[in-house]
Amino acid sequence: MNANLEPNSILLQAWIPLLEPIGDLGSYWWLLMLPLVLGISIAYRATHDESLDRFWYRVFMFTTKSIIAMGSLAAALYLFVYLVIPMLRVV
């Protein structure tokens, strides 16, 4: 890498959209599930409902319920893995 590059140009070179994956997501990768659920909700509501009245309200409710369901499942699995399994005795 050219040592004379300005810091901003180095940052711009760090990610080439569509060619490279987005940068390091760290522990926030799960936030990318939110737009995914929104997309699924829009496609599902657009094809499932007889009427498109209050379409965005229904999309919002469907998205919220899906996220709450996934969050609950994740919390249950977390408790199972970190609390229940360590309590099991190994014979």
Partner: peptide, 26 residues
Amino acid sequence: RRRGIFAMIAILGMFFCGLLIGGVDS
């Protein structure tokens, strides 16, 4: 038409976001 446009936005949006996040290697 509205139904189709909503579906189009959702499907193409998800696919494009996938390429944006993971690159064409996805």
